[in-house]
């Protein structure tokens, strides 16, 4: 089963003019957001994107952009009150610095 979150909310963009069709975005995306056709990648399941940023970081052509972040309400809440260190103990792996 594939879960989908809120509609039309993610910051994912793909510039198909830059795309070389290497398919690495299909490989690294854990949510199968992209498909490959006619030698270029296409965003075919936008609402499944969780903004992890794997595709953007691994696109050799720099054709993909996304504001990466961790979709964790508790982290957002702690950030609002400047208590970032309180998340998940001091061991929190998430970062909200890219957001804002």
């Amino acid at each position: 089963m594939k879960f989908r979150y809120l509609k039309n909310v993610v910051t994912l963009h793909l510039d198909q003019n830059k795309c070389s069709g290497c398919g690495l975005c299909l490989e690294v995306c854990p949510q199968q957001v992209f498909t490959l056709g006619h030698g270029v990648s296409t965003i075919t399941d936008r609402d499944a994107c969780l903004e992890c940023g794997a595709c953007a970081r691994n696109c050799p052509q720099d054709a993909i952009s996304v504001r990466p972040g961790v979709g964790c309400a508790y982290a957002v809440l702690m950030d609002m009150f400047n208590l970032k260190g309180k998340c998940c103990g001091d061991n929190c792996g998430c970062t909200l610095e890219d957001y804002k």
């Binding site: 879960f3 969780l50 979709g71 964790c72 309400a73 508790y74 982290a75 957002v76 909200l96 957001y99």
Partner: peptide, 24 residues
């Protein structure tokens, strides 16, 4: 439920911020 977003594998930060604006 809102807190569970941190345990899921499919919730985006943009989505979480949007739902919190209403829910909180």
């Amino acid at each position: 439920g809102m807190n569970f977003t941190g345990s899921t594998t499919y919730t985006s930060l943009s989505g979480v911020v949007r739902e919190m604006k209403i829910a909180l």
